[in-house]
């Protein structure tokens, strides 16, 4: 079977799971996680009020679970088991229900994370325009800072690609020097790359523009 012996070896790839928990058993010393009893679950008053306000917006209180998780994540920095338990207590749901929901969505963190978020879009348009290298630079620049950098799927701003969302502020098109500036702006607590913010950019369509617009010209139309 000489031909088979000459086969190139098929490498085994690591499973590549980003998932904590796959390899973990439960802790049998813990009690089952049922709906938390209000008498035993202290919830910060402002968080409770905010969650209750969200619940009031919907015909079914469960609809507020994503807004409530946003609130809890903001309050606690991440969707910690305690944060989830507090939301569960206010919403009268099991913590598991909310864990299930939170883990489905990319913007919720079930692990502790740095304070600031930089999402670098690495989807098709941005990567055609050099996002992969930008992402690496961004990771390097953020090292040692309280900043989480993630390669993100399309953020809906391909017109300014390659781009990033810095704590929710869309900036682009970014060049390879920008990551350093972004980190500096974050550390200084000032608006990030103001001259590249999407919120200030004019529409590309010429008929959409007005003379008194004082923002940034569309990409590729700086001369116009």
């Amino acid at each position: 079977m000489s031909s088979i012996d000459r086969r190139p070896p098929v490498r085994r790839y690591e499973h590549g799971s980003r998932v904590p928990g796959w390899d973990e058993a439960v802790d049998l010393t813990k009690p089952p996680a049922t709906v938390p009893d209000p008498a035993l679950t202290p919830v910060p008053e402002e968080l409770r009020a905010a969650i209750e306000a969200e619940m009031a917006k919907y015909p079914d209180r469960k609809s507020a679970s994503i807004p409530a998780l946003h609130l809890a994540q903001r309050h606690h920095g991440w969707c910690s088991p305690e944060a989830i338990k507090q939301v569960a207590c206010v919403m009268r749901l099991t913590p598991a229900y909310l864990t299930s929901v939170a883990s489905f969505y990319d913007m919720f963190y079930l692990q502790p994370k740095p304070k600031h978020d930089v999402y670098v879009c690495t989807n098709i348009t941005c990567s055609l325009l050099g996002a992969d290298e930008l992402y690496e630079r961004m990771c390097e620049a953020a090292e040692g800072h309280d900043i989480s950098v993630r390669g993100f799927e399309c953020l809906g701003a391909c017109d300014i690609g390659p781009m990033a969302s810095v704590d929710g502020e869309y900036v682009g098109p970014l060049n390879l020097d920008d990551p350093k500036l972004i980190v500096e702006d974050i550390e200084a607590g000032r608006p990030v790359l103001e001259h590249k913010q999407l919120r200030r950019r004019a529409v590309a369509d010429a008929k959409g523009r007005v003379d008194d617009f004082d923002g940034i010209a569309p990409v590729g139309q700086e001369g116009n």
Binding site: L129, G161, D205, G220
Partner: peptide, 14 residues
């Protein structure tokens, strides 16, 4: 329409 990628004037157009 949203045009992006390898074009010189990406963006939204009606």
């Amino acid at each position: 329409i949203s045009v992006s990628g390898d074009v010189q004037r990406p963006g939204n157009y009606e």
